[in-house]
């Protein structure tokens, strides 16, 4: 064991970790936003909203993420004639892909609230949006917090796939350091520890959030 290899290359690898976080944060935010709209469309009674959303979700859930990244990076420029930089291609792939998973979590969360709640809100004269904002979403959000956080953690891990189109995120940089220094054991154990730490932090945060949302009711 020679742990000095980690300290010698710390700045280089840390730079990758920042890129990993950028990828993850943008993808989670974008995926969540797109996922909310997809989920609402999938819950809609209007066929022109329901069918495209359903098709989209099934389509992306039926593909490996790495293929989506390849498509976006190699195929889209062929079609549009414009090259896409690696970061954009990766982020768009992640958002497009993860939105399908977020959408299903959100849909299930909304459907877990009984229709009686909607009826009670409507009976009081509330509109669709008032009912969603004040009655359904606050309850649904609590129910879906664990699944949403899990999915966010999965995205954080999935960002390592961006290396296939040449993005030098955290794991890719560890890999590069290993190619130079030939210290696989130390480096990959270190990489594992870093992923483990951040993902565990996510899990702890999720539990905190649930307790916080749950304190008064149920």
């Amino acid at each position: 064991m020679d742990l000095s290899v980690i300290f010698r290359n710390f700045d280089f690898m840390f730079g990758g970790l920042i890129l990993t976080f950028q990828l993850a944060v943008i993808s989670i935010a974008g995926g969540l936003l797109l996922g909310i709209f997809l989920a609402l469309a999938r819950l809609s009674a209007r066929p022109w909203l329901y069918y495209p959303a359903t098709l989209y979700i099934h389509f992306f859930r039926g593909l490996p993420l790495i293929l989506v990244i390849f498509w976006l990076y190699f195929l889209v420029p062929v079609v549009t004639g414009k090259a896409m930089d690696e970061f954009t291609a990766a982020v768009v792939s992640f958002i497009a892909f993860e939105a399908a998973y977020f959408a299903e979590i959100i849909r299930a969360g909304i459907q877990s609230i009984s229709t009686g709640q909607t009826m009670a809100a409507y009976a009081g004269g509330l509109t669709f949006f008032q009912c969603a904002r004040h009655v359904i979403l606050p309850q649904a959000l609590r129910n879906m917090t664990p699944a949403l956080v899990t999915q966010a953690v999965v995205i954080f891990q999935d960002t390592s796939l961006a290396y296939v189109i040449g993005l030098r995120e955290f794991l890719r940089r560890v890999n590069l350091v290993d190619a130079r220094e030939a210290r696989s054991v130390e480096l990959y154990l270190f990489a594992g520890l870093i992923y483990f730490l951040f993902c565990s932090a996510g899990a702890v945060l999720s539990r905190r959030l649930e307790n916080c949302l749950q304190r008064d009711w149920a």
């Binding site: 009984s114 009686g116 709640q117 009826m119 009670a120 809100a121 409507y122 009976a123 009081g124 004269g125 509330l126 509109t127 004040h134 009655v135 606050p138 309850q139 609590r142 008064d216 009711w217 149920a218």
Partner: peptide, 28 residues
């Protein structure tokens, strides 16, 4: 919505909003 706001409704399973206090349920 206006029509419904003039017709109160009470349900078999109450359907109170569980994330709100009794007072907030009434004032929403």
């Amino acid at each position: 919505h206006k029509l419904r706001s003039n017709i109160g409704m009470v349900f078999q399973h109450f359907e109170l909003y569980p994330h709100m206090t009794a007072l907030d349920n009434i004032t929403l």
